[in-house]
Amino acid sequence: MIYNGVALFLLLTVIAGMVRIIKGPTVADRMMAAQLFGTCGLAILLVLARGMDMPELIDIALAFSLLATLATMTFVRRTWYKGDDDEHS
């Protein structure tokens, strides 16, 4: 029961972080909010693995941790260029 409460709390944290996606002044702020989603989603999965008694969820959490950084890397390398007269800065 405590674990489900912890998962609920973490979900509320994720939802609060969504405000930053909506009003983030720069594109990087929005990207960082997505990164927060990755970390909090990972924590939710780990807690649910204990609360729902499904140890195979830890493997999904492993996949999350491997793939969460891919979006940020692509963002920095491909979308947010150095000398860009960009529309979204």
């Binding site: 999904i60 999350f64 793939l67 979006a71």
Partner: peptide, 26 residues
């Protein structure tokens, strides 16, 4: 995961969030 389908969750995390997002960004 809440619907007790961890295999689909794994595919969703890898394909939906991990691969399609960076491809969209590029």
């Amino acid at each position: 995961v809440r619907m007790h389908a961890p295999d689909v969750a794994l595919a969703e995390a890898a394909i939906g969030a991990g691969l399609t997002g960076p491809l969209f960004l590029a």
